[in-house]
Amino acid sequence: MSMKLDLGSTFIRAIAVAVVLAIVAAASTIMGTYPTLIAITIMVFFVYSLSWSLLANTGMVSLGQALFFALGAYAYGIFAISYGMNPIAALFVGPVMGALAGLAVGFISARLRDWYVGIFTFALTPAGYALAVSSQLQPWTAGAVGLATPRFPLGSSLWLPFATVLAFAAYLVIMIIKKRRIGYALSAINNDETAAGTVGINARLYKTIVFGISGYMAALAGAMFVALYTSYIAPDYFGYPDISYSVWPIFYSMIGGMGSPEGVLLGTVLLDPLETAIRSWLSGISVVGGNLALVIFGLLLVVVLLKAPKGIYGYVAKYVESRKARARRAAEAGTKAEVSTGQ
């Protein structure tokens, strides 16, 4: 019985997410070219933030997620430029590099305790940056100058729908993981790794696998970002020296509510355009308005972490849950009353 209920609600949730994504895409298309571009970034950062929250929900806080994002971007560009691969194929094949890097990083991270994962992933980003600008890799990466990529071979009116479909696919992947055996294992690992081991869960294996999946998703986001939005790859995608690219998925996930993919969606849909708006407004006032916008975002993160550690969605979900529980208790009380009157 409970199974059916769960399946039903999962289905409804998926529909709701599809509807939200479709509305974002449709509304922005009607509004014009610039909003369409913003909507593409929403799709990209939704995928990216999901990749971060997948790790976070397995007890691993990545502070260097941009490593995979940038790897995906570079792999896409290099496959398309240096190896002449069709960009559409490169968009999906490139992120395999992210998956491989994810497996390698995950193999180590799975053996590290709590905050060491953060410092380890964080520390990889300067190394990635160093590689990107190194003279040895110059022929492929174009060093500090960055790479301009060829035009994505789809009609530009299809870019946003394409991004939307990919975003929904990423959401489905997360939901499928959640509903399968592996999802239960990941929750258990997240809550108590020792107890998870006791009930037979191989935490290291699952953590490594999850890092691989997350690496692919983050890299896909990086490739989408380049293919559908910037047409340009810069070494600072590694989140170094400016940590922005590693911090954005944390912002969106934490403020929206990393505990569920819907929360992450909420965070991305609300904050991505808000950030762009604040940034362009402040940039109009001053050349460093962008930095001021980021200060505001930093403050927002701090306030949410202090006041609503489970994010906006966590707040809402808690409210709904408590109402449901009350209704259930009321119903139980009703049944008991019936039984006792029946006696």
Partner: peptide, 8 residues
């Protein structure tokens, strides 16, 4: 994450 936010 809080100290990251502060750093930012």
């Amino acid at each position: 994450l809080l100290t990251i936010g502060i750093s930012y």
